[in-house]
Computed example of a mutant assay.
Amino acid sequence: MKSSNPVLSRLGQAAERERSSGYGSYGPAGAGYGQPGYGQPYPTATDYPAAPPAVRPMTIDDVVVKTVTLLGITGISAIAAWNLIPVEMTGVAWIGAAMGGLVLGLIISFMRIANPALVIAYAIVEGVFVGMVSKAYQDIFGYQGIVLQAVVATFGVFFLMAALYRARVIRATPKFTRGLIAVMGGLFMVMLINFVLSMFGVSTGLRDNGPLGYIFSLVCIVVAALSFILDFNQIEEGVRMGLPQRYSWTAAFGILVGLIWLYLEILRLLSFLQSGGDD
């Protein structure tokens, strides 16, 4: 089964080689080796049992279990960070976790093999980051109830996209995939440039409570939501191609990244709405 995704195609070919690399042992159990007629029976078809697969292919259930596991780890890490890290250390922990998560995320994204330990470490670090951001918005900036609202909205959007994908209302066609990846790359470049400019005191208005900030946040939310379509499609293709079970960690990592991005964008937009309502 060929895929339009070259990375998945290479992984699928590697998985096929792994599954076909083993052969059954010669002769029936305990028969040993030797020429026929010298205490050894002539081999038959049953004397060459098919070797079991070297690895078990991943399933949708594998991805679901890994995703729930990573979400649980992220949630526990966020709650622990919220309650254990002092308020005066919020900024330091926020920046440190953000940088650590970025480094781990890049390593995982560009690795050719799935590494569960790195993915779990990413979930822990991102949990600290999410916990600090959430604590800042609710306890420091004073947006009461905003965290629960953002969590509910995030999972609501996720399950809506899952339903739309399952009903094939939105399809991950090659044109859709190329366009969305280009838009995501452009957005991240804009956010990076905006961050660098903000360090020098230059405000572009993209992250401010104003019309431009509202529009940019909405665009980010829509793009983050649509990114799940790419995740669902890659999971389906990976299952069809028989990728090894360990790649379910990589698939779950992709969903976790999308959920965190969507949550942060919704959190920001809700803070704009609360600020507007208070004025």
Rank of each mutant, 00 (worst) to 15 (best):
M1A: 10
P6I: 00
L11P: 04
G12I: 12
A15G: 14
E16A: 15
G22S: 15
G24L: 08
S25N: 13
A31H: 10
Y33K: 05
P36N: 07
G37V: 13
D47A: 06
Y48V: 03
A50H: 15
A51T: 05
P52E: 13
P53I: 05
A54D: 14
A54L: 15
R56I: 06
I60G: 09
I60T: 08
K66P: 04
L71V: 10
I73H: 04
I79H: 09
A80R: 06
A80S: 07
I85W: 10
I85E: 12
P86W: 11
V87P: 00
E88A: 09
M89I: 05
T90A: 08
T90I: 04
G96C: 12
A97C: 09
L104A: 07
I107T: 04
I107D: 01
I108T: 04
S109R: 13
R112T: 11
R112V: 01
N115R: 06
N115Q: 02
P116K: 03
V119H: 03
V133C: 08
A136G: 07
Y137I: 13
Q138V: 14
Y143F: 15
I146P: 02
Q149R: 15
A153L: 15
T154H: 06
T154C: 06
F155E: 01
V157M: 08
M161D: 00
A163H: 03
Y165G: 00
R168I: 00
R168Y: 03
I170P: 08
F176M: 10
T177I: 11
T177S: 09
I181A: 10
M184L: 14
V190W: 04
I193P: 10
I193C: 08
M199E: 01
V202T: 09
S203A: 13
L206M: 13
G213Q: 15
L218W: 15
V219C: 09
C220S: 14
I221Q: 09
D231H: 08
E236W: 04
G238E: 06
G238V: 02
G238K: 02
R240H: 12
L243A: 02
P244K: 02
A251L: 00
A251N: 05
F253R: 01
G254Y: 01
L256N: 07
G258F: 04
I260S: 05
E265K: 07
R268T: 14
F272L: 02
G277N: 10
